[in-house]
Design a protein around this nucleic acid. Structure first.
Lengths: 242, 242
DNA sequence: AAATTTTTGTGCGAATTGGTACAAAAATTT
DNA sequence: AAATTTTTGTACCAATTCGCACAAAAATTT
């Protein structure tokens, strides 16, 4: 089997790469809140009948629930409403579609965290900020379905990591990003006087990671949002006081 | 699809149920350290050509690496050396074999923990005991293969939980057992004066669970035993002092 | 309106899947 | 030694798997 890197797979299909760029960059076509399709001049051929972002969201939900291996292309076709060759043309094979779905998941969380995870010494206390962080995570772990689905990375990517180099890379990448983010957060907190100097930001970041993992696991096992909030509250209190 | 409970599945095949009992109960055939087969009078038909416990161990390794869904019966036949109908006769279907393999895993860890996880106030300090606990977990997370495999529960059972009632039950059961064990450990530690009264055993148990989860995840992502020991050391120091 | 380009949708095909039927084999019991 | 019991191993089956070929469709461009 040929090794295909995570980066390669993510950018495999040109069709969606273009879309990803148009989503990431600020809208170059004007200030009006137009649909992306109505904005820039429509490309040459037959127009795409689906919204790529919505497809990723729907695909993510299937992968999240059934895992990568147990999710068939028929499942994906049924869930997204896009038929098989179109999925291939738009997103690449099953593995590429999975990776893109997980990127979608990752970015959705990342954007939420951006709104709460900063400490400049002016706003709220460390424990309330961390509390808000946990609320966000608990929300994504329990709010996507009737039955809580837990952490999509732990619940699905962990399973596949040894067999799929690209998924392993994505997993490592995600962990690294998490670590860096929280280490920076706690370093900032220290420089602004919100965190005592004797604490080690690296260690605290690891601790947050552990607690988060705990929540993700318990959610998958059926714990309710309330149960998880109780746990998160206890943890935050223990680490940062009431 | 008919619901089959975890308990039912575990005791599905009579052949191995008998073996499980003979393993769980103290050996009724005498004090000598005999092979199970050489001990009690051999049953009537053709003797089994494999060691059930060894088969479970080998099957576990495959499931651990590839996950439940991606492991085919051909994989299991190749890894165990037992052909398909014999696997079915001996352990039930793929799901039952998986559950039994995971029980094997669980018990192996449980027995190791029994040797270190007790606090009667006479022996070592809390932090060294907890340190030994983490060493055991790190050992199972990294010591089974060249590439570290992480926590078998988090890496495989989490993935299947929503689709397989029996696996979900096993997962819940395992989490519960973990919680109870550590809660008791810390309560004991408090009564023997090894842990300050202001600590909440429940919360500490959750914390240990989180750190353990963190180790299991990072191992699957490729972290070495040394890296994990560093993390575990930092955590223990933070919680219980140097 | 004809040519071009891209997406869609039906349908297929080679390979793999989990599970089982059935006869041969290997032991104990009578 | 014949009968009985259990395991083994070959061979197979129906169902599902992923991926793709190919023509029809829907848009823009000339």
């Amino acid at each position: 089997m040929v090794h295909q890197s995570y980066e390669t797979l993510i950018h495999k299909s040109e069709a969606v790469e273009a879309d990803a760029v148009s989503l990431a960059l600020p809208d170059v076509c004007g200030d009006q809140a137009l649909e992306a399709s109505a904005c820039c001049k429509r490309p040459r051929g037959r127009p795409r009948a689906y919204d790529p972002d919505l497809v990723l969201k729907k695909a993510l939900h299937v992968f999240w629930q059934k895992g990568f291996a147990a999710t068939s292309l028929d499942d994906l076709v049924e869930a997204t409403g896009v038929n098989r060759p179109s999925l291939y043309a738009g997103f690449g094979d099953k593995e590429a579609l999975y990776l893109k779905s997980m990127q979608h998941y990752r970015q959705r969380i990342s954007e939420q965290l951006d709104t709460v995870l900063s400490c400049n010494g002016q706003g709220d206390s460390l424990s309330t900020i961390v509390g808000r962080y946990f609320d966000i995570m608990i929300g994504t772990y329990t709010g996507q379905s009737e039955h809580p689905l837990g952490c999509a990375f732990m619940c699905t990517a962990l399973n596949e990591a040894p067999q799929h180099e690209s998924i392993l890379e994505m997993l490592q990448n995600t962990i690294e990003e998490f670590d860096v983010r929280f280490e920076r957060f706690f370093t900032d907190a220290q420089t602004y006087g919100c965190l005592a100097a004797h604490h080690d930001p690296k260690v605290l970041a690891q601790m947050i990671g552990g607690i988060t993992a705990n929540l993700g696991v318990r959610a998958r096992a059926g714990a309710s949002a309330d149960e998880l909030r109780l746990i998160a509250g206890n943890m935050t209190r223990m680490l940062f006081g009431a």
